[in-house]
Computed example of a mutant assay.
Amino acid sequence: MAEKDKELLLQAKDISIVFGGLRAVSDFSLDLYKGELIGLIGPNGAGKTTVFNMLSGIYKPTEGTVTFVDRNGKLDVINGRSPAQLNRLGIARTFQNIRLFGSLSVADNIKIALHQNRKANPVDVLVRTGKFRKDEKLMQEKTEHLLSLFHMENKISEYAKNLPYGEQRKLEICRALASAPELLLLDEPAAGMNGQETEELMEMISFIRKEFKLTVLLIEHDMKLVMGICERLMVLNYGKIIASGLPAEIQSNSAVIKAYLGSEYEAIAGGAQ
C-alpha cells in the first residue's frame, strides 16, 4: 500500500526528554499508520521504554509533539495527557516488568480495564439496579470471551500471581485488549519466555492484530520474533534513531550490526551480498 493511501494513527515529531541534564531521547520521530506492526529495537539503555513512556502519557516530552487520531477520527496533540486519558482515547500498553494485580483473580484483572465502559453510576451499584446487573453481565461475558481467545478460560478464578510466567504475560496483554484500543504498545512481550512460548507469542500477536484490527508497536530483543512478524523496524542507540526500514534492510545495516545485532548478523549480511 502506498504511503498516501495509509491512514495516519499516531505521529511523534522530534520528541526529546531530558532528565536532570541528561538527554535520554533526542529528536525521535515516528509516523505510525493504522494496521501496522512496527518494531522498536536497540541495546539496553537506548531509550526504547522511555519512548513508550512518552507515547503512553507516563512522561511528557521536554520538546516536540505527539499527535493521535482518537476513536472519533479526531487528530489531536496528546502531550501532557495522563495514561488514563490516553487509554480512553485508544492507546493501551503492557510493561517490560509485568504489572498485574497479583492478589486479584484473573477475571478481576480484566474487569478493571472494562470499568471505564460501565453505564451504571454509584447509586446503581449501591442498590443493585437493573443497569448495574446488566453491566455486570456484559463485563463477565467480555471477560470470558477474551480469556477464551487466549485459551485461559479455565483460569478465570485463579489469582493472577499463581499463573505461570507465560500466562501472566498473556493476561497482561488480555487486560490491555479489554479497553478496546486502537494502538497497542507491547514492551518486551517475550521477556523471560522460552522458545516454545515465544513461538506461541508470535502467533498470538499476529492473531490479535487481525482479530481486533489493531495497530501494534513493540519493543523486543528476540530477533526471531522481531524479524518474523514486524513489517518495519526502527533502531535506537543512545536515545537517537540510527536506522529505520524493512527487517531485511535493518539486518544488513552496518551501523545497526555494530551498535546492536553483533557479529552473527554481520556474517548473515555478508553472505547475502
Rank of each mutant, 00 (worst) to 15 (best):
S263W: 07
S252C: 13
E200A: 15
I15A: 00
N79V: 06
K6G: 02
A178N: 02
K224Q: 10
S206N: 15
I242T: 05
Q116Y: 08
L89F: 12
F132S: 06
I219N: 02
A190Y: 01
L114A: 04
G35T: 07
H115S: 14
P189F: 08
M227P: 01
A259D: 05
Q273Y: 14
K13P: 06
F132Q: 05
M1L: 12
I41F: 07
I208L: 04
Q196S: 12
N237D: 15
T67L: 09
T49L: 08
V123R: 06
A107T: 06
E167H: 11
E153M: 10
L37S: 09
L146Y: 13
M234R: 09
A12M: 03
G64A: 08
I268S: 12
G239E: 01
I38Y: 07
V66I: 15
N162M: 08
L22P: 04
M1P: 08
T50I: 04
F207I: 04
M202D: 07
K142Q: 14
I98R: 03
T94D: 05
R175K: 14
G245N: 02
M139S: 15
S179K: 07
L177C: 11
T49D: 04
R118S: 12
E7R: 13
L75I: 09
L37V: 15
S29Y: 03
I110C: 00
G239D: 01
G130M: 07
P164S: 07
R99H: 11
